[in-house]
Computed example of a mutant assay.
Amino acid sequence: MSTSPDTVTRSAATNKSGPRSVQVVRSNLLLHAVLIIGALAMALPFAWMLFSSFKPLGEIFIQPPKLLPQDWNVDGYGTALGGADFVRGFWNSTYIALTVTAISLLTSAMAAYAFARIDFWGRRGLFMVFLATMMVPGQLTIIPLYLIMGGLGWVDSHLALIVPAALFNAFGVFLLRQYVRGIPVELEEAAEIDGAGRIRRFVTIILPLLRTPLTALGIFTFLGQWNNFFSPLIFLNSTENFTLPLLVNQFKGQFTSDWPALMAATTLLAAPMLIMFAVAQRQIVEGVALSGSKS
């Protein structure tokens, strides 16, 4: 019985691709195993923090360590939420982060549009200087910034946290400029022919097309302000003005610490971030990709 050439060709292709398919499957399994191990290693501190918030103080340092509490209780959450300071700090952190995020998105989009579309003298050099500020640690500029805030009378005021962060965001300008440069100029030229001015073109054409990077930048900015500990520590003195990171730090004493209350307060502080990441994971990944995808 004779075999057709097509049958021989298909059999040879199947035999050739078989080992390669097995190798691909093994590589994928190995990759997923490594990723799962890494994910578990990163999730373990969060799990330890969460379960420790339900432990009594005597179980925190029990040997050998146990992840799950033996005696479940919510005394730590009662201590953390017992006073009005924590609720006030939650409000302070929320409105400061939201205010900085809203203003920063507007100012960053305007600056990015100017650097990408408006041809003015020294634009390239000014943008390089603007980006160079990202390489300067904030600790180096905190003393002159404190002197400026003191001269304005903003020390121990939330304005010291809102105004500098909202009006200057070098990363935000860089991210949005990369995306604006990828928007076809013909869209603005067509609107200009119809009589639209610069502001109208920015509002009606550019901003709607910046929805994805603006969402990613908003998430980054909000999380950065929510976790900000250094600036409030420097500028704020009154307990009623404290943000959540400062209040959480008060549960840690010089000689002893209320570990269940500290774990409970830290869990409450981290919960909004974890929820935001779970809801907006795709936008966060796209934002990281956009920062280097367009030139």
Rank of each mutant, 00 (worst) to 15 (best):
F220R: 08
E189C: 06
R177H: 04
A216Y: 10
E189T: 06
L176E: 01
L187F: 13
A196L: 07
N227L: 08
F202R: 03
A190L: 00
I193G: 05
I199Q: 04
L223A: 08
L236S: 05
R198Q: 14
L223Y: 00
L176F: 00
L187C: 05
R211H: 14
S231R: 15
I205E: 02
Q178V: 11
I219M: 03
F222K: 08
L187W: 09
V185G: 13
T212S: 14
R201K: 14
T212R: 12
I193R: 02
R198T: 15
D194K: 00
A191M: 10
T212V: 14
P208V: 03
R201M: 14
I219A: 06
R200A: 10
G197N: 01
P213R: 03
L214V: 08
V173M: 06
R200G: 04
N228R: 00
Q225K: 07
T215N: 11
L207P: 06
R200S: 12
L209R: 12
F174V: 02
G197D: 00
I219C: 03
L207M: 15
V203E: 11
N227C: 06
P232H: 06
V180R: 05
A216T: 11
A196P: 00
P184Q: 08
G224V: 01
E188S: 10
R198S: 15
F202M: 11
G218Y: 07
T204R: 12
V180L: 10
G218A: 07
G197L: 01
R177A: 13
R211D: 14
W226D: 02
L223G: 01
